[in-house]
Amino acid sequence: MIAQRAVERIAEITARRHGAVVRRDGVLGRGLPKARAVVAGRRTRIEVEVAAAWGRPLEQVAAEVRQAVTEDVERFTGLGVDRVDVDITAVEPRAATGEAGGVGADGVERLAAKAPVAGPAARGFGLAGGLVLIALGAVGIAEMLRSTGLLRGQVIPQGWFGRTMVVAPAGWLRPAGIAAIVVGLILLVAAVKPRRRTHLAAGELVWIRPPAAARLAADSAARVDSVTAASADAKRRRLHATVTTFGDPSRVHDEVRTAIADRLSTVTPTPRIRVDLRED
């Protein structure tokens, strides 16, 4: 069964890729484009709310969005689309910027949808916190070196904090300074490290999580003749299926592997498939 939110997500991405549709971030909740879908069996009804760029006939924009949403939802989900209502609730002076996805057959420039990634890292805190900890660690080590005579002069000028301030070097400053520098470097690396991908691409507009790929694999394996039970678990680049069967192990192994590979043929990156058999 196709989830309602999956249909809504496909409709939103499709509408966003239209060259005359402007993406607007929402202050509370979802921004625009925003879709609402009702799924009943193998049929669906969709309502899409969009903001359009100034200068394009609104009737034409609504018709093109309606057609594109209908085609993409039917193509990617297999559901029949009974109706698509397009509400243009705002007109913007210019289109929002995005990654160009080329020009479609209808002559409309489309925007490429971005793949989902892990939640945003605390970049501001990581950068600021890392730099502060590295500075404090350097000061602590420098004060320790000054107390042993290896470094001359004031590390912290008294004028910075008032003439009454006196920094008294202690034995714990060296390990504390080293620890502060190490933690600061870790925060800096975490802040600038690219966020990892969390989904597998399942076509041009659809992404699925590895557990969803595992459920698809288990369903495909369970449909093979002589298989009485099937389960699977998946990572981004690995899928392990376990099946229980009373049939010929060699035949069942090959058929299960082929069935899973066919079901996940559009998934990128293609996972490595391992099949374990258990006798029933």
Rank of each mutant, 00 (worst) to 15 (best):
R5H: 14
T14Y: 06
T14M: 07
H18D: 14
G19W: 10
G19Y: 07
G19A: 02
G26D: 05
V27C: 09
V27Y: 13
V39Q: 01
V39T: 00
R42M: 03
T44Q: 06
R45V: 15
V48W: 03
A51V: 03
A51I: 06
G55K: 05
G55D: 05
P57C: 04
P57K: 07
A62P: 00
V65F: 08
Q67A: 14
V69P: 09
L79A: 10
V81K: 03
D82E: 15
V86I: 12
V86Q: 00
D87Y: 14
T89Q: 14
A90L: 09
V91Q: 02
V91E: 10
E99H: 13
G107R: 07
V108G: 01
R110S: 11
R110T: 07
R110L: 06
R110W: 02
A113P: 15
A113S: 14
K114Y: 08
K114H: 11
V117I: 14
G119R: 13
P120W: 08
P120L: 01
A122L: 15
G126K: 01
G126Q: 04
G126N: 07
G129H: 04
L131W: 10
L131N: 10
L131I: 13
L131P: 05
V139Q: 10
A142R: 03
E143S: 06
M144E: 12
M144R: 14
R146H: 10
S147R: 03
L150P: 00
L151Y: 04
I156Q: 03
P157R: 07
P157F: 02
W160C: 00
F161Q: 02
G162P: 08
T164K: 08
V167P: 03
A168K: 11
P169T: 04
A170C: 00
W172E: 15
W172A: 10
R174V: 06
A180H: 03
L187Q: 07
V192D: 00
K193R: 15
P194M: 10
R197P: 04
H199S: 04
L205S: 10
R209S: 02
A213P: 03
A214L: 05
A214W: 06
R215H: 13
L216D: 03
A217L: 09
A217R: 00
A221G: 09
A222Y: 06
V224W: 08
D225H: 11
S226T: 13
V227F: 08
V227W: 05
D233V: 12
D233Q: 12
R238D: 14
A241W: 02
A241Q: 02
T242M: 11
T244H: 11
G247S: 05
D254S: 11
D254G: 06
V267C: 04
P269T: 05
T270G: 08
T270C: 00
R274Q: 12
R274L: 13
R274H: 14
V275L: 13
L277S: 09
E279V: 13
